[in-house]
Amino acid sequence: MKTKSIFSSRNLPMYVTICLFFLMFGLGAVSFKGFFSLQNFLNLFIDNAYLIIIGVGMTFVIISGGIDLSVGSVLALSTMLASSLLEKSHMDPILVIPIVLLVGISLGLFMGFLIQKFDLPPFIITLAGLYLARGLCYVISLDTIGITNAFWQKAAQSQINIGDSFISPSVVIALVVFFGGIFISRNTKFGRTVFAIGGNEQSALLMGLPVARTKIWLYGFSGFCSSLAGIVFTFYTQSGYALNGKGMEMDAIAAVVIGGTLLTGGVGSMVGTLFGVFIFGTIQLLIAFQGTLNSWWTRIAIGFLVFVFCFLQRVFETRKVAKEAPEPSAKAGAKAAEA
């Protein structure tokens, strides 16, 4: 799926996104005093570290042509699990972190197994996963659990200085996941298989690629990202709460879609997703700086942006497909036609 030039039309949505981000950030800088500063830019990383991590996993899933609706709930489950293990069982952080990650990965792998092995629609399985994980949060506790663990507080309070500004350790984790994601998507067999599955699963199968294994691990990876994001989220909030990350699946999907990843699969990039997260963060910043608007407008704005970008995707796609096939309606239909 590599293209000859980085300025090919395939990357166009990503450039639109990057321009849109600078435009919106510029708009904020012009409208509000104190908006334009390095710290405010770095705050985009600090406040959205968890979303970057989830976005990386979601990008892989969407590139493969699937979807994972359970990310927000798995994040919440991880915050609950981490805080309850730390505070109620008084476990050591060295044990807590692997346990939380393992739970996330297993849940993801299990959903991937159901999706792949029994050929079930990803959204219904992960939608059930959404409710399962959310329900398990309440099994752990119906109330918020505050975290007083020393390691966690250190992770929350320590700052890494960049000039006069600073970033948090969470940002470092997010960046490691982000660059890891780029590496996996470009330089590993797993990454290339994901692109191939998204392009045409039948062809990928005929090429002898390990489609089944890759698809199952995809959801496992997404589960890993979600639970890691959950840990980062607890660094941020210092507590576990069952309602954390409600609707976050939309935020993550929005970031991925705005970043130019095609919902039909096969095309996408991590860099685009990063900028998608930035746009999401900038909308929140703009609404916070504006001051009078209800924070629920963020949701509406994000919904609207997703609509615009999906619409653009369809326009590009229809133009391209118009030459090849007459029926570009549903993805399943197109796939069946190809097969």
């Binding site: 996963g129 409710y131 399962l132 959310r134 329900g135 069952a242």
Partner: peptide
């Protein structure tokens, strides 16, 4: 809230 688990 926990009933969701069963439904899922």
């Amino acid at each position: 809230e926990i009933a969701q688990v069963v439904k899922a």
